[in-house]
């Protein structure tokens, strides 16, 4: 308060931040309080605190399908991260070594493919991808999501990883060679340990996209038992049109893990968004 009196110019700044904080917090607060209410109470008094805290809403939501959606999201997100990292690391390694070995033109072609890949919006490929999933018999499997998510995340990930690989000193590379390391061993023993942080960043960014993707998730998956959270929730809502408390509890369960992950791994999110911003 005293500082405010000394710096009156800070008042509008604080007001602005407070107002925005309320706008952000209120819906979250609403979600949490209403997830403990029976339907009638949400209907009649959705702004007040629950009169009785119905913890069983969470148990019902979990059993009512959220647990399966959750597991599917974990599988799809995990699979996408692993595949994306593996493919990106290999390609970036190949590019860096080719560039330093004078095969820059070939590496340039791969770089073009990366930039080209980043320019394509997934929506544009929807109709052919749908047809392709039938031909490859991938429709209604987790692979349909993992492979497509990977394909649209790999280009940016390669660029991120490549930037770090370029900074690995050539001396180390040569030393490894002299010690008799094969090139794959060099990648494993020299390059990867030096790029842990960018790999974490890339994982977090990939997780963010895979966890929340909606369009492919509603089209490529038919079975309720294979659905990820964003598309499964649509079904969950329709089935619970009369049980809002359970529905909102399901929403909280779906949102919580990624929020926690973000708060824990904030640092990597931040550097990722800085580096990833070149996309567009």
């Amino acid at each position: 308060m005293q500082t405010l009196i000394r710096h009156p110019a800070r008042l509008p700044v604080i007001l602005l931040l407070a107002l925005h904080a309320v706008i952000v917090i209120y819906p979250l607060f609403w979600m949490i309080t209403n997830s403990f209410k029976p339907t009638e109470e949400i209907y009649a008094a959705s702004w007040s605190l629950p009169t009785v805290w119905m913890v069983e809403n969470y148990a019902k939501a979990w059993r009512g399908g959220i647990s399966a959606y959750f597991l599917n999201s974990v599988i799809v997100t995990g699979g996408t991260i692993l595949l994306t990292l593996a493919i990106s690391v290999l390609a970036a390694f190949g590019m860096v070594r080719a560039e330093t070995a004078g095969a820059g033109r070939a590496a340039g072609l791969v770089l073009m493919a990366c930039i080209g890949g980043m320019l394509v919006a997934p929506q544009v490929a929807l109709v052919p991808l749908y047809k392709m999933m039938q031909v490859l018999r991938l429709q209604d499997t987790h692979w349909a999501l993992i492979l497509t998510y990977t394909a649209y995340r790999v280009p940016i990930t390669i660029l991120l990883v490549r930037a770090v690989f370029l900074a690995v000193p050539r001396d180390l590379d040569d030393c490894a060679h002299i010690d008799g390391c094969s090139s794959l061993q060099t990648l494993w023993h020299v390059y990867l340990p030096m790029s842990r942080s960018i790999l974490l960043t890339a994982s977090v960014l990939t997780a963010y996209h895979a966890w929340n993707e909606f369009l492919f998730a509603i089209i490529f998956i038919d079975s309720d038992r294979l659905k990820t959270i964003p598309s499964g929730l649509m079904n969950f809502r329709d089935a619970l049109m009369t049980d809002w408390g359970v529905l909102v509890a399901g929403l909280v369960i779906s949102a919580a893990p990624i929020i926690v992950l973000f708060i824990v791994a904030q640092r990597y999110f931040l550097s990722g968004f800085a580096a990833g911003a070149v996309k567009g």
Binding site: Y130, M133, Q134, V135, Q139, D140, I219, D222, M234, N235
Partner: peptide
């Protein structure tokens, strides 16, 4: 949602 999804499913390998 069924009206959309049944089209997807009937056109599918599944």
């Amino acid at each position: 949602a069924y009206k959309d999804k049944i089209r997807v499913v009937l056109g599918s390998s599944n």
